Structure formats: structure tokens, C-alpha cells
Deep mutational scan, measured.
Amino acid sequence: HNLTITQGKLFFHYNPKLCLSEIHKMEEVSGTKGRQERNDIALKTNGDQASCENELLKFSYIRTSFDKILLRWEPYWPPDFRDLLGFMLFYKEAPYQNVTEFDGQDACGSNSWTVVDIDPPLRSNDPKSQNHPGWLMRGLKPWTQYAIFVKTLVTFSDERRTYGAKSDIIYVQTDATNPSVPLDPISVSNSSSQIILKWKPPSDPNGNITHYLVFWERQAEDSELFELDYCLKGLKLPSRTWSPPFESEDSQKHNQSEYEDSAGECCSCPKTDSQILKELEESSFRKTFEDYLHNVVFVPRKTSSGTGAEDPRPSRKRRSLGDVGNVTVAVPTVAAFPNTSSTSVPTSPEEHRPFEKVVNKESLVISGLRHFTGYRIELQACNQDTPEERCSVAAYVSARTMPEAKADDIVGPVTHEIFENNVVHLMWQEPKEPNGLIVLYEVSYRRYGDEELHLCVSRKHFALERGCRLRGLSPGNYSVRIRATSLAGNGSWTEPTYFYVTDYLDVPSNIA
């Protein structure tokens, strides 16, 4: 807008934040220059609390790290170098490059900038070799853009010569660093050979998330399962459950009422301010606690030095998902009996873990797994792929695949051998790939016309006998059925096997 004052003059007093240069501009645009008398524009009460600059400061050096910015700028000295009290560095987070010096300023003089007072450097006698002032900004957020400017702080001049310097606002972004852990990993099994893994992005990506790394490792069953005799009275049979499938998407929606109208769909109840505040506090606490764990609990591995020492970490090797089922080394339970199943799973520490690289999504279907087997899954978020990966501390989750139908069934015939004193040795093959492992066998036998009897055969007993022995049988026709019990439950009964026990007292003698 054009402003013209045809008559009258300007009068400025007691404006401590208004620089004289701005008042002189007002004289020019209003056409009143030359009308004012000496005392109409006070030299001592206008701009006496402001830094009124008329020179431009330029930054000469900028260096960044993930949490620091090192700045240096060209030296500046007023005509009387004693008038320079120091520099004021202003900075704040700036997602967009549209910041002005006066953003967030209120009537009390406060604003949204963080201000650092910096002492002037030592003055050199040689004007050509003056030290460049600077400042190291610490405690910054990774991968965050900051708006920065600097200006001088000078003393009051009796001659009211307006001098000083100020830089333009520059924008500097800190470097990326390792992201925080992925949030809320959930693993479920939808079949006997697959596990579905879902997660949420890290709360602090500290860069642009480029991919996720998912490692999985087959877990050995508890050692007590191999040692305890679950045929003993009072000892509860062990059981394991597989990871249940995901709930429906509708039930997972946030901010939804727990109660549904019987007449149909209901609208979600909005969260109160107290609920939102509580969630923010919980989120802040979780982030602080995660940072504490990362800094205190997890110790970084030592990389190899120039002395030739090897990095103890196993090298990563990509495998196809079809090879995942046989990740671990199978060892027989008892070496003397080769027909026992290889369900003991000690994992070799030198073995390469299978892994998958996930790009542009937060889910993965891990296939080719062994049925009813526990897996430990390790999830890392990465925001750099080359020249070397920059990934987060791992988040861990466990899951067990679903049982395989008929995996616990005894394959092959049940054979028998009759000894003296009416002892019958029953023999059968253990299931080759049971659900988890076989903890015991149930032997059901009966003599024709009598009630059915049951015998429990422990895992250890089966390994020693290759089956079991029935003792003290009365003469007669017998039928026997056997079924295995694994961590997933009972298998199917075998087809009945028949044998006849004679009275050993009636056996004919070869003595003449």
C-alpha cells in the first residue's frame, strides 16, 4: 500500500525493539523526510534493546553428524571492536523451508527459537588472519532439518551509529543413524509349514526405512522333555500350542467401542483428552525405555581390526524358502538304536541362519518350516543398504507352526516275539517326523474274553527296548493296539495285532 503524509511529521519514542533503520525507511515511504526535528525521533529510546544489523554474515563451514552440527561463519568486528559482546545463534526444527525470524513471537518477546549466546573469538592483530567464530550444536535429532541463523550482539553506541551483522536463515539436516526397533511384532501360524509375521514401523526411523531383515531359527525343545518319565503317576503330560491366527481386521481397528449394538453396526467412541494424553505418555515412556535398553543392555560386537582377528559373527547367506525346513542338525536320541526319531534339535552355532529381506511392506510369510516346531524370529529395521547396512537392534518374537495331521501315527506293522515265561516283546517304529517329539506310547492289549488293559511306555523305555515287553501273560489269544502321544496330543491307534500265548508248562520236552 502507498502511504503519503502531505502535512505533519513523524514522532517515535520509547520503541526499544524498533531499529532506527526501520524508522528511516518509514520517513522515505511516507514522504516526511526532512520535516522531523532532532528530538522527534529519539536516538536513545528507539532500538536500544534490539540488534540492528546492516551487514550480512556468511557461514564459512558446515559439518553434520547424526546428532551434531558444527558451524563456522566469517569474522565480524565493528569499528570499535570492544562493542562486540558476542553472537546469538538461533535454531529450531523446520520440516519445511518457510521459516521466518519472527515465527511464534508474542507480545512478551518470546519466540519459538532456541538461542545460544556465543563469546567472540580472540581478536588477531592481523586483519587478514582473524579467527572464524563458530559453535557445535549438540543433542539434535537424527535425520531432522533445522533452520539456523546467527547475528551479532553489540553494545549501545553513544554516537548512535547503527552497526551489526546478521546471516540469512539456512537449512541444515542432520545425518541418518540406526533406527529404533520395529514396533509390535506379531507372529502367527496359518499352516503346519508357515508363519505369518506382521509389525509396525519404528517410532524413530532416523532416516528413510529402506528394508527390513527377518531372521528365523528353529528352537530346540526343553531338555526336561527328553529326561522326564511322563508315565509316572502324578506327572502331567506336557503340551505345546501353536500360535493362533490373526483376529479379523475389524476387531483390530483402534479407537473402536468394545460393545456392539445388537441391531447392527455401531460407531466408534472418540477417545477423551485424558485417554489420548495417557497414550502419549505411555508411548514416550516406551521410547525412553527402549533407548535405555539399547544403550545399557546391548553391547556392540567388536569388529575385526587390522591384526587379522576374525569377526566372530557368522556370515549372512541367503537361502531359498524351500530350504528352511531342514535348518537344524538332527541327532538321534540314543545312538545305539537307529530307529528312534531325530527330534532332539541342538543347533550348531556355526550354522548360517536363513533370512529374508523385506522391502516396502511390514509383513512376511515364512514358508518351508517344520510342522509343530518353535521358531525364534528376529526382526531388524534398516535405513541404508549400501555401502553397508545400517540397521536397528533386533526385536524378537516366537511362534510355533501348526501340527501336521497323521504325523504322530505309527507307520509300519507292530511285530512281536514270544519268549519263555510268557513274555512277549512288542516292537514298532517311532514316527519319523512327529509333531514336536514323542513323549510316550500307549499300549492297549486284551486277552479274548477279558477286559482291555493299558500300559504306558516312556520315551526312554522305548529307546532301550525298541518297544516294550509284556510279562506274566496268561495263555490265550491276544490283540494289541499302540498309539503315540506327542507334544500336540495323541496320534491314531494302530491296526490290531494278534498273537497267541501258550502255557509254557505244557511245552513238550526233548528229553527222552
Rank of each mutant, 00 (worst) to 15 (best):
Q219P: 04
P354I: 12
S257P: 13
H211M: 15
C468Q: 06
E260N: 15
G476L: 00
T272P: 14
F337P: 14
N255V: 10
A394F: 09
Y259P: 08
S248F: 14
P270C: 02
G467R: 06
K406I: 12
C456G: 01
S268Y: 06
M427H: 06
K406W: 11
I276E: 11
L213F: 06
S341M: 11
P270T: 05
E465L: 11
F337E: 11
P475Q: 10
V414L: 08
E290I: 13
S239D: 11
G374D: 10
Y500C: 15
R376A: 04
G491A: 08
F215N: 09
R318V: 13
P238S: 10
N339D: 12
S251K: 13
R483H: 03
V393M: 13
E247S: 13
L426R: 01
G325H: 09
Q275D: 06
E495M: 05
L277D: 08
C391H: 03
G374L: 09
A330M: 13
T502K: 07
P338T: 11
I377Q: 02
A488N: 13
E310R: 06
R459Q: 13
A484E: 04
G472Q: 06
P244T: 07
H461L: 11
A463L: 12
Q275P: 07
S392T: 03
T415W: 03
L321A: 12
N208D: 02
S284K: 13
R318T: 07
K357V: 14
E356N: 13
H454V: 06
P508L: 06
G476M: 00
R481P: 00
H454E: 07
L369E: 01
R447C: 05
I438A: 04
R318C: 06
F298P: 04
E217S: 07
L235M: 12
R301N: 02
L277K: 13
T494W: 01
H425R: 12
F289C: 04
D506Y: 14
A488V: 11
K271R: 13
N360L: 07
I377Y: 08
N422Q: 06
T328S: 15
L225I: 10
G489A: 14
G467F: 04
P244I: 12
V424T: 03
H294L: 08
Y445S: 03
S262K: 05
H416A: 05
T401K: 00
F419V: 05
P270M: 12
S251D: 12
G374K: 10
S509I: 15
D385K: 13
S268G: 12
I209K: 15
R400L: 04
V507H: 01
E404R: 04
C231H: 03
C382F: 00
F246D: 07
T494P: 01
V296Y: 07
E282G: 13
G234A: 08
A220K: 07
T340N: 08
C266T: 09
L321E: 12
V443R: 01
A399R: 05
P238N: 13
R471G: 10
V296P: 10
F337C: 08
L379M: 08
E260F: 08
K317R: 09
D503K: 07
L437R: 12
N339H: 09
P403F: 07
H454P: 04
A488M: 06
F372E: 03
D408G: 01
V327Q: 14
S509Y: 09
N383Y: 13
S474C: 10
D323V: 06
S251F: 11
S251A: 07
H454A: 04
D311S: 14
I366Q: 01
D323L: 07
T401R: 00
E217V: 04
S486L: 01
Q219T: 10
E404M: 13
E495P: 11
G322I: 13
E442G: 09
C391M: 03
V414N: 01
I276F: 08
R459P: 06
L364M: 06
E282F: 13
R481L: 09
P387W: 12
G234D: 12
L228H: 03
A263P: 11
S223Q: 10
R313C: 14
F246Q: 09
V439N: 05
L440C: 14
N490C: 11
V299L: 06
R319G: 14
E258F: 13
R316I: 13
D229W: 05
C468E: 01
S223V: 11
F499G: 00
P496F: 10
E227L: 11
D385Y: 08
P270R: 12
E362T: 11
S363A: 13
R218G: 13
N421G: 06
F499L: 12
Y212Q: 00
E351T: 13
R376V: 08
L453N: 15
C231M: 02
P245T: 12
D311L: 15
A399L: 11
S305Q: 14
E290L: 13
L455V: 12
R481C: 04
E452Y: 12
D250V: 06
G449R: 15
G476P: 00
D273Y: 13
S479D: 02
S344L: 08
S304Y: 09
S315R: 08
T373G: 05
A463M: 11
L232R: 14
C456K: 02
S398R: 13
V393T: 09
A463N: 14
F215R: 13
R400Y: 07
P332H: 10
N206Y: 03
Y441R: 01
L277I: 11
D323M: 15
R471W: 09
A335F: 09
V480F: 07
D409R: 09
S492Y: 03
S304G: 14
A395P: 02
H454I: 14
S392L: 02
V365W: 05
V423Q: 05
Y500W: 13
S274N: 09
R376P: 01
G264P: 06
V324R: 08
V297M: 12
S344R: 13
V507N: 15
P403K: 11
L321Q: 15
C267Y: 09
Y375C: 01
E282N: 02
N435R: 01
T497R: 12
H294T: 08
D385L: 09
T328C: 05
T343A: 14
V329Q: 07
L473H: 01
K287Q: 08
E258A: 12
T303G: 11
V331I: 15
Q275A: 12
I438C: 05
R313A: 12
S268W: 06
A220C: 15
Q252D: 15
V214I: 13
L293S: 06
G449N: 09
K361R: 07
Y396C: 09
F246E: 12
T494Q: 02
A330R: 08
G306Q: 14
N490Y: 15
F246K: 10
Q275V: 07
D229A: 12
H352C: 12
G325F: 10
G325T: 13
P349M: 06
H211T: 04
A407V: 09
G325K: 14
D506S: 12
D311T: 14
C231A: 02
L440Y: 14
D261R: 15
I482Q: 08
C231I: 02
T307K: 11
S348T: 06
S283G: 04
P244H: 14
K236I: 03
E495R: 11
A394Y: 12
A381P: 01
S304L: 10
P387S: 08
S486C: 01
G476W: 00
Y259S: 10
D204A: 13
A263R: 11
T401V: 03
Q275S: 09
D250S: 10
T415L: 14
L505E: 06
W242T: 08
S320I: 10
V393I: 06
V439L: 10
I209D: 13
E388T: 13
K287G: 08
L369Y: 00
V296A: 13
Y375L: 04
F285G: 04
L437P: 04
F215M: 08
E224R: 11
R319Y: 04
E310P: 11
N435F: 00
E433T: 14
G489H: 13
E258W: 11
Q256A: 15
S341R: 05
T373S: 10
